[in-house]
Amino acid sequence: MSEAVVDSHAHSAVKQPAESPVTPESWGKLGMWVFLAGDAMSFGGLLAGYGAMRASSPDWPNPLEALGIELTAFMTFLLIVSSFTMVKALSAAKHSDLPNFRKYLLLTIIVGTVFLGLQAYEWTHLTHVGMTMSGNPWGAPLFGTTFYILTGFHGCHVFGGVVYLTCVLFTGMNGRFLGENSSPVEIVGLYWHFVDLVWILVFTFVYLL
């Protein structure tokens, strides 16, 4: 402990545990980063598999014609906005601003839920058009398989994120995560931004390319 104090030439109240050099604030943050690295490999594997099937298929449908781009572009915008409200919630928590912390975290949850609703709407529409896991009217059946698996796996992450955010909101309702104790908010934020980051890639590779 005393070593840590000497090391940092203290210009503020220093109480970093010397045991965690990568993320001095909390072990949980490092844990989340390691989890996200693993999760990124899951998404990477799925995307690479999707690319391999698409590249070796002679009749892959044009996603721009088969899938609705306007709605998904709006969904992308929603996730970007929710990432913004998430950093605002963290910033409010760090500045011990309880009302804004609640407001922005609630907004994040609402926008995430709207995203899930729109995805459900999109899937319903696509199944009505005849696109399923095993076939579609436009060409290679794997087009539907990879689409539902990729967007579904991402949707599960969004759902998990909404549940996680709700838990943090309810636990932090009375100001438990303010000021120095804001690390759980930062950790849920990391997860939420990761879900946004993955959607940016999914949107490009599945819808636009």
């Binding site: 050099p21 996200l36 693993g38 490999m41 930062e186």
Partner: peptide
């Protein structure tokens, strides 16, 4: 910026970059 990777230690960026390299 949103995940603050710019303001973290380099080791954390290495962790974050590992899956990209593997992919």
């Amino acid at each position: 910026y949103f995940m603050h990777l710019r303001f973290e230690r380099t080791t954390l960026s290495v962790i974050a970059l590992t899956p990209m390299v593997i992919c």
